Computed example of a mutant assay.
Amino acid sequence: MIHHIIPSIKQADSTNFFLMAGPCAIEGEDIALRIAERIVTITDKLNIPYIFKGSYRKANRSRVDSFTGIGDEKALKILRKVGETFGVPTVTDIHESGEASMTAEYVDVLQIPAFLCRQTELLIAAAKTGKTVNIKKGQFLSAGAMRFAVDKVKDSGNDKVILTDRGNTFGYQDLIVDFRGIPEMRDFGVPVVMDCTHSLQQPNQASGVTGGKPALIETIAKAAVAVGADGLFIETHPDPANAKSDGANMLHLDLLEGLLQKLVRLRAAIR
């Protein structure tokens, strides 16, 4: 399904899931290119369609002194260079309607953060760029409620929509994943992605730094593939402990290939 949404994506085995993966935030050109090169090598080997992800700016931070970015234009140019260098689509998130047209000049997919998935003007602005719009499901919404987010984009003349689940708020400092939501959202006629890393966040910690449970990434990914997710979203970094953002729940880059090998086998068995 994703091949029809982003024609530039490398054509791979149509029975496979696709992958959105990369660092949480764009930290610099060298590390972005190194991460992309490693993932492209792995996904080419495994015939997994690949979209490079990286936030050009982090607008939703717990503390005012948290890392937010290296500068909008600088980060967006890096995203463009990654796409051009490796011939893969790129995705980044936007936070206000005024960012949509500017960001669309650099990337192939505009992502709507979970906390903003009900923002009508933002969804319409993203839709009107003509780019694919990846809407993350709000932690506070049911899967069924995401139909209205999809409708806002489609009613604005853009049928290129992806939905991404990232868990549901469970108390104050934890998230859970209701895997019933994946087939429910697929019934809307759009590809559905499981965010295997953000769904393991532990927000609202006393330190003001979000925690996470990266040891369970494989568990979430396997379950998502088992229930029919079209794609997986995984934040990965060669040194998560020293990443500028979301290091607590990212997958170490060295572990990505082994995980994807297992998931490809699982997908084949199910299909």
Results as ranks from 00 to 15, higher is better:
69 G>V: 04
85 T>Y: 13
138 G>T: 04
96 E>I: 13
65 D>Y: 15
94 I>K: 00
133 V>I: 14
75 A>M: 12
121 E>I: 09
133 V>L: 03
66 S>R: 10
81 K>G: 04
87 G>A: 12
98 G>L: 11
120 T>I: 09
48 I>P: 06
90 T>S: 06
63 R>L: 14
113 P>A: 00
122 L>D: 00
111 Q>N: 11
123 L>A: 09
60 N>I: 03
137 K>V: 00
145 A>P: 09
151 D>S: 13
116 L>P: 05
128 K>P: 05
72 D>G: 13
100 A>V: 01
117 C>E: 00
103 T>K: 03
82 V>W: 04
135 I>A: 12
92 T>M: 05
127 A>H: 00
96 E>P: 05
58 K>A: 05
115 F>T: 02
121 E>P: 08
78 I>V: 12
53 K>Y: 12
68 T>Y: 09
94 I>A: 00
109 V>P: 01
145 A>C: 03
129 T>I: 09
151 D>K: 12
60 N>K: 06
141 L>I: 07
54 G>S: 05
53 K>M: 03
123 L>I: 13
65 D>F: 14
64 V>R: 14
88 V>E: 06
85 T>I: 15
140 F>Y: 06
111 Q>I: 02
146 M>T: 04
149 A>K: 01
103 T>N: 03
142 S>H: 08
47 N>W: 14
94 I>M: 00
154 K>R: 15
135 I>H: 00
123 L>R: 03
141 L>E: 00
57 R>T: 15
132 T>C: 12
122 L>R: 04
143 A>R: 04
78 I>M: 09
150 V>T: 13
106 Y>W: 12
75 A>G: 07
115 F>S: 04
